[in-house]
Amino acid sequence: MRTRSVTRGGLAAALAAAVALGVAGCVPAVDEPEPPADSGAANVTKQLDELTVAAAGSMKGYSRTRFPHWRKTGKNCDVRDSVLQKDGESIKLSGCNVVGGSWESVYDGLVLDDPAQVDIDHVVPLANAWRSGANEWDDAKRGDFANDLTRPQLVAVSARSNRAKGDQDPSQWKPANRSYWCRYATDWVTVKHYWRLTVTSAEKAALTDMLEGCK
């Protein structure tokens, strides 16, 4: 199975800058911190230890509309197109709209050749974020989270795997592709650490176990 982790960070940063330009009318984004240079297993384990452990919060008041997405990134295209372009191969564009290409779903290894077959997964699901602290944010911050192209929060996967995952955390659902577990756990921790979201004790235990595969 092909591994995309080597280039995803650079592409994500470039795409995030493009989004900032499109939204802000060519005004560079301000005070956007760079992802940590050390992304090794030791650093991720340290980040996991820094997360607050707490029981999952209530779903009261939750709605996907409280996390506005997908933001526009150009005429007739949006963040979804940006992720399709980042994660795909042999991409075909109509303007900046992705109309063709090939995608290997990292969760289950399925190869998809039609963008309509591809789901864009929030690695940390919106509902999970709500239960772990995002309920206290305003909708603008929740929109930043839902459209985050800088962190490894958005990935193109098969609809089947995305819907099987739902809003479950790693103690409840893991990718069928076990070789992706290290990357999945790393991405999950990276996102939660940056956005200062909590983890449950079961979630932390599952992440710790998955990160063992990174060593």
Results as ranks from 00 to 15, higher is better:
residue 15 L to K: 10
residue 170 P to N: 11
residue 31 D to C: 01
residue 68 P to Y: 12
residue 148 D to A: 00
residue 214 C to R: 02
residue 74 G to E: 09
residue 78 D to F: 13
residue 18 A to M: 11
residue 147 N to L: 05
residue 4 R to H: 13
residue 118 V to R: 09
residue 203 E to I: 11
residue 126 L to V: 04
residue 144 D to I: 06
residue 57 G to H: 07
residue 153 Q to G: 06
residue 184 Y to R: 10
residue 151 R to V: 11
residue 89 E to T: 15
residue 4 R to M: 15
residue 179 S to R: 06
residue 2 R to T: 15
residue 127 A to Q: 09
residue 17 A to S: 01
residue 80 R to K: 14
residue 25 G to E: 07
residue 20 A to C: 06
residue 78 D to T: 10
residue 159 A to Q: 12
residue 13 A to T: 09
residue 155 V to E: 07
residue 55 A to Y: 05
residue 50 E to L: 09
residue 40 G to L: 12
residue 6 V to L: 15
residue 98 V to P: 05
residue 114 D to R: 14
residue 153 Q to L: 04
residue 133 G to S: 05
residue 206 A to R: 07
residue 77 C to G: 00
residue 158 S to P: 05
residue 77 C to A: 13
residue 169 D to W: 11
residue 96 C to I: 07
residue 186 T to K: 15
residue 94 S to P: 01
residue 117 Q to R: 11
residue 176 A to L: 02
residue 214 C to K: 04
residue 35 P to D: 06
residue 170 P to E: 08
residue 41 A to Y: 00
residue 183 R to L: 13
residue 159 A to C: 14
residue 169 D to R: 13
residue 37 A to S: 08
residue 185 A to F: 02
residue 14 A to D: 13
residue 214 C to Y: 01
residue 101 G to S: 14
residue 21 L to A: 09
residue 16 A to S: 02
residue 15 L to P: 03
residue 164 A to I: 10
residue 37 A to R: 13
residue 172 Q to P: 04
residue 175 P to E: 12
residue 67 F to V: 14
residue 187 D to C: 13
residue 163 R to W: 04
residue 72 K to R: 11
residue 67 F to G: 07
residue 22 G to N: 06
residue 33 P to L: 03
residue 60 K to N: 05
residue 58 S to I: 14
residue 149 L to F: 00
residue 169 D to Q: 15
residue 184 Y to H: 05
residue 129 A to N: 05
residue 135 N to C: 09
residue 208 T to Q: 13
residue 51 L to H: 03
residue 203 E to M: 14
residue 104 E to D: 12
residue 90 S to H: 15
residue 43 N to E: 06
residue 134 A to E: 07
residue 202 A to N: 09
residue 112 L to A: 03
residue 163 R to H: 12
residue 2 R to E: 15
residue 68 P to G: 13
